[in-house]
Design a protein around this nucleic acid. Structure first.
Lengths: 138, 138
DNA sequence: GCAATATTGTTATTGTCAATAACTATCCTG
DNA sequence: CAGGATAGTTATTGACAATAACAATATTGC
């Protein structure tokens, strides 16, 4: 059966993202993190004044969806919250969170090296700029 | 807040795919199709001997997940099933399905033209080959 | 031809991520 | 200080995918 969808950029993007996320999820599961959780850890790092809303805006995760995400990280002892004022709270990494973040960083970096290695050299450097143009255009 | 994830290929891929699927979903909703449903219509076209399992293998959708997908398409009068033998059944487009398929084709083609137009010319032709290498490597 | 094996379609359940709407409490601005 | 924006939350929904189990049928290797 000829796969006539194969050359369609939208379809190729969907399939590639799906394959990528599946494999990354498997690797992150080894340190008990989901992809969205690892994203938060990687972003927060050791800053002490980042609010949940701010994280959500950068990662494009809506406030409502940040709640269970941060709750799980907090329950796992990876983040803490400290009130900034009566309305906002800072999210910061616990020592365990920093240690986990380092491991997540190692895993994702290795993973992305593997990803890039699969791409022919002449295409490799064009991927991130091309993807960036797609996602920031809306 | 500096988005240190922005240059990571995995993250860029995830964000781009997400943005793309959101917009494509909105466009396909105009003809009452979801992305996965449109994929099936585009793939099946007018062949008369394609089984559900075969479609699933090509699109990387598992048999179990094909069931509700095809059920919805059948209920919408877009596909029919005809037994091939006691075990397999062929999936084929009804006239309404062929008409809908043509509209889905027009929408997705226009959409992908828009997508490519957002990418700088020097990156454009590298996208599909790079993505193809990512998804077919596993 | 038949037994072991593989495949098809199906049910049911679960998980991940995302979208929407509504609400309270707080903050910021004019 | 009043009006509007913002932060966090709850609850619900949707799309897509993964897993496990099962019955029925087809295919194979002897």
């Amino acid at each position: 059966m000829t796969d006539i969808l194969r050359q369609r950029p939208g379809y190729a993007l969907r399939r590639a993202a799906n394959a990528m996320m599946g494999e990354l999820a498997r690797r992150l599961a080894l340190i008990d993190l989901r992809i969205a959780e690892a994203s938060v850890l990687l972003l927060v790092e050791r800053r002490h004044d980042v609010t949940a809303s701010e994280i959500g805006r950068v990662l494009d995760i809506q406030r409502a969806n940040m709640v269970p995400l941060l709750a799980r990280l907090e329950e796992a002892g990876l983040i803490e919250r400290k009130p900034i004022d009566g309305k906002s709270q800072a999210v910061l990494l616990t020592p365990a969170g920093q240690e986990r973040r380092a491991r997540a960083d190692a895993i994702t970096t290795a993973f992305e090296d593997d990803l890039l290695a699969r791409i022919a050299p002449e295409h490799r450097d064009h991927l991130v700029p091309a993807l960036g143009a797609l996602w920031r255009a809306e």
